[in-house]
């Protein structure tokens, strides 16, 4: 018989290296004569899309489009160290470094432009849609590239180097007390499953995922991280297991170490909550790891909801489910 159930899972995740380890990202920025710009950072884009995020941040600050920014990363001869692409830290940490660097390079330009526009303070200058001009006075503006070109002829160099460090302290080794990570990300997911009580097979029908991202710098990428995380979570909950025999991996192949296929993935609905994290770039915090955390709990809880058995060891294989069902039947007599 096929029975359906629904389960809920919540999770939290402290991002960054944590525990007082110097969690530093760096970035170099140069604004070119035509107003376009290059960002150099050590952060590796492992596929998650960090390069696009950095381009968006720089573009936002310079009043440009993302495609006007060249992002060059992870070449040790060229780029500064930005720490590892892990710990859900690149959007937050390197995003902050890029933001600081762009603002620094931009600040010289603002000072120069303020003089050009006879504006007493650079606060009165804005960069928007490829133009630089006086806030609130559309008649006094100039193509950004022209202003940069002019500034350079006058000896200004719009380059910068900046770093950003996350806040974190080591925990006490005997009590574990301390503030090891900052910031924390939160999320919850609901999974609806169907369990076949005869074969023990579990099919995940639907997952609703709601995650706290501070600010979604790119909603497409947020959704992509969530769907990817949910799918890895399903693999973790139901399929994946390295079989070891005296330390030897018995299934070192994709035909025996099974990850989900397109047909194993349920309908995924991804939502996010945006409550700005004051220390993050535009309020953003990371999502990479948190996206996969609640899934396993939601699936395991849903199995219990469907057939009344509690699976306590991963993965929840059909064998384990049938065995638990048999034990339950025995208990009930």
């Amino acid at each position: 018989m096929k029975k359906r159930g629904i389960g809920l899972g919540c999770a939290w995740y402290g991002t960054g290296y944590g525990n007082g380890f110097p969690d530093v990202s760096s970035a170099f920025v140069e604004i070119h004569d035509d107003g376009s710009a290059t960002v150099l950072t050590g952060a590796v884009d492992v596929g998650q899309g960090s390069n696009s995020i950095f381009a968006q941040i720089a573009a936002e600050e310079l009043g440009l489009r993302a495609e006007d920014i060249c992002v060059n990363t992870a070449d040790t001869d060229v780029t500064p160290d930005s720490g590892t692409s892990a710990a859900t830290r690149q959007t937050y940490n390197t995003g902050n470094a890029v933001l600081k660097a762009v603002r620094q390079a931009k600040s010289r330009l603002l000072i120069y432009a303020a003089r050009e526009f006879s504006c007493p303070t650079p606060e009165g200058i804005e960069l928007k849609s490829g133009y630089i001009g006086v806030k609130g006075d559309p008649s006094r503006r100039m193509i950004l590239g022209d202003m940069v070109f002019k500034a350079r002829l006058n000896g200004e160099r719009l380059i910068s180097a900046e770093s950003s460090t996350a806040r974190s302290t080591p925990v006490d080794l005997t009590t574990g007390q301390g503030a090891p990570y900052w910031p924390y990300s939160f999320g919850c997911q609901a999974a609806e499953v169907e369990v076949d009580t005869e074969t023990g097979k579990v099919k995940v029908l639907k997952v609703i995922a709601v995650h706290d991202v501070g600010k979604a710098l790119n909603p497409t990428q947020v959704e992509g991280q969530i769907a990817g995380g949910v799918t890895q979570g399903i693999g973790y909950a139901l399929l994946e297991e390295l079989e070891l025999q005296k330390g030897m991996i018995k299934n070192p192949a994709f035909s025996s170490y099974l990850i989900p296929t397109a047909l194993d993935v349920p309908k995924i609905e991804a939502y996010f909550v945006e409550e700005a994290e004051e220390s993050g770039p535009y309020g953003a915090k990371g999502l990479g790891e948190p996206a996969m955390l609640p899934t396993v709990a939601a699936v395991i809880n849903a199995i219990d909801d469907a057939v009344g058995v509690r699976i306590t060891s991963l993965p929840a294989t059909p064998e384990k489910i049938l065995q638990a069902l048999a034990e339950k039947k025995e208990e009930l007599g």
Binding site: G224, I226, A227, T231, Q232, T261, A262, L263, V265, I268
Partner: peptide
């Protein structure tokens, strides 16, 4: 669509946006 792509594994996207 799902069947047509079922012989192509992806570990990043969760297939959602591909579909």
């Amino acid at each position: 669509i799902g069947v047509a792509l079922s012989g192509n594994l992806c570990r990043c996207t969760g297939y959602d946006k591909i579909l």
